[in-house]
Amino acid sequence: MTSSTTAGLSAVDFEKFREFFYKRTGIQFTESKRYFVDKRIETCIKQAGFPGFNAWFSALRLSDRSGLLQDLINQLTVNETYFLREDYQFDSLLKTVLPDVLAARGGAGRMTGPVKILSLPCSTGEEPYSIALRLLEEWDQIDHVDVEIHGADIDSAVLDKAAHASYGERSLQRVPMSWRAKYFAPVGAGRYQLDAGIRGAVTLHQINVCDTTSMRAFRDFDVIFCRNVLIYFDELSSRRAAENLYGAMRPGGYLFLGHSESMSRISPIFTPSRLPEGIVYQRPSGGPR
């Protein structure tokens, strides 16, 4: 392999790239991800019209073409998901977490401000829209409480797709047919678009969970779903992400991680709670420990 063709990256190039990408995003790629990374960098180089890695990497670092970095992020972040994925956590949201949130905030009708739920990363929208569907179809308090749902992701391309909310069979395989008939309309080529009312009710944001400054815009969330992303970070970036999530939550708020993730390996700032449907993490509701 040579260092400046699109046939692959040299070990030195990979190391330079890896350090750069880590500093900008907090995402760490190990040697075992070389094939995955090489292929996607190759795509970026070709799409941007550079003759090889060196010219592209130089422009990435030094030029004002911010689109280069965003294209790279879009290529290197994993976005595959589907509706109602790991939905035992949505069961937990409806049966245990939301009733507790309402009780802690004085009960439906006496609350100040809406219940706020954040899906981060939201990828192409399946997760925040799944939450919306479950609330509309199965939560008996939805007519008595205002609920704000937000989705956020580092990848601008998936956010565009989330805003359009058009999905194929694979994404929709777990959606009951009755829900599909009620909330989705066929738009051709085997794809279905989500009802505009639900699309419009979910607010989408581009954000990097490791970026403390931009995460300051998020405050007072009652529930955050942050599933299957911290596993991509090294220890230090995970800690910072955890701190930023903590800052985005209301005291007593709940944090859901992916089933293979554990906050106890990342940071002690959250309190784990064992619910009937699994583990969830809470920002302590008292004063600072």
Partner: peptide, 11 residues
């Protein structure tokens, strides 16, 4: 009541 969109983008 129900799903509500934030009136303005968060700061």
């Amino acid at each position: 009541m129900g799903l509500v969109r934030r009136e303005q983008q968060p700061a």
